[in-house]
Design a protein around this nucleic acid. Structure first.
Length: 269
DNA sequence: ATCGGGACCTGCTTGC
DNA sequence: TGCAAGCAGGTCCCGA
């Protein structure tokens, strides 16, 4: 379930293999992902990759013919393999490269997406996105200002892409625990000082995960080179009923928009 | 405008 | 044992 650190790590992992390469052919075995893969991608040939970037959880392959957008959904993965490696059941797309390698997109649940945008145009999905969480633009003051008058619970608030991108279910829970904020508290009823703690917590958990992920990707061409997880130091995620690492009280579980949230009723207010 | 709930999809876990 | 229900999760869409 890639969250922003996993996506960033993946981007860095594929970069040396796809940058400046020519995509000679795109092999699509399953075009029905979250959205259908556009024909422009399927028919792409001899497009040179001129940039590999990330925006929110999208990996952007800019080519001299236009931009390929790749979203990993929650079970998606990108790997670099030699051409000719037999595809598995969930290997939906191969981008064949002039180097003889290929970029293979795998996604068992097909929640991810492969999209297209002409050069110089921003895909509709990238418009109206909030700031990157690790940018200067994202600050406690910004969060506090955005939250004014909002009754929405803070947890779905920070998971809202229009507020800030890249904060998924796992890190939202971890950051709120770290900041001592109850996940159900209305976003508009949190002080600037507490937003400073929350901002720091979000940045800290993302950076820690990024550091952990970055060390797992020595060789991105290995078949089993799945991006590593940030499973260490998860204080609350998936630990409902277990003792709080701070106070030992049993962690509680709540739902926010069908998403489960684990928190400490004593440490988080 | 804002909010909450449903839908998408499949594999793994849980429960009868 | 076998099967069905439950759950996971990012994002869009719709109705209130």
């Amino acid at each position: 379930m890639p969250e922003l650190p996993e996506v960033e790590t993946t981007k860095q992992g594929i970069f040396p293999y796809v940058m400046d390469e020519k995509i000679t052919q795109v092999v699509v075995r399953q075009s029905q992902l979250r959205w259908p893969i556009p024909n422009t991608v399927q028919q792409l040939a001899n497009a040179v990759v001129v940039a590999v970037t990330r925006r929110a959880k999208f990996i952007l392959l800019a080519t001299d013919q236009g931009q390929v957008l790749i979203h990993l959904g929650m079970t998606g993965a990108l790997r670099i393999l030699p051409q000719g490696v037999a595809p598995g059941k969930h290997d939906h797309v191969d981008f064949l490269l002039s180097s003889g390698l290929m970029l293979r997109y795998t996604d068992p649940r097909r929640f991810g997406a492969v999209l297209w945008a002409p050069t110089g145009e921003q895909h509709a999905m990238l418009q109206h996105l909030g700031p990157e969480p690790l940018s200067e633009e994202f600050s406690a003051a910004y969060l506090h200002a955005q939250a004014q008058g909002r009754s929405k619970a803070i947890k779905p608030f920070i998971m809202d892409n229009k507020i800030v991108v890249g904060v998924g279910n796992i890190y939202a829970q971890e950051a709120l625990f770290k900041a001592g904020i109850h996940p159900s508290r209305a976003a508009g009823r949190i002080s600037l000082a507490r937003y400073q703690a929350l901002h720091q917590a979000i940045v800290a958990v993302l950076n820690a995960a990024l550091a952990a992920g970055g060390t797992t990707l020595k060789d991105f061409t290995k078949a089993d080179g799945q991006p590593g997880y940030f499973q260490q130091e998860l204080a609350v995620y998936g630990r409902a009923g277990e003792p709080c690492v701070n106070c030992a009280a049993p962690l509680k579980k709540a739902l926010h928009g069908q998403r489960s949230t684990v928190y400490c009723g004593r440490c988080q207010r």
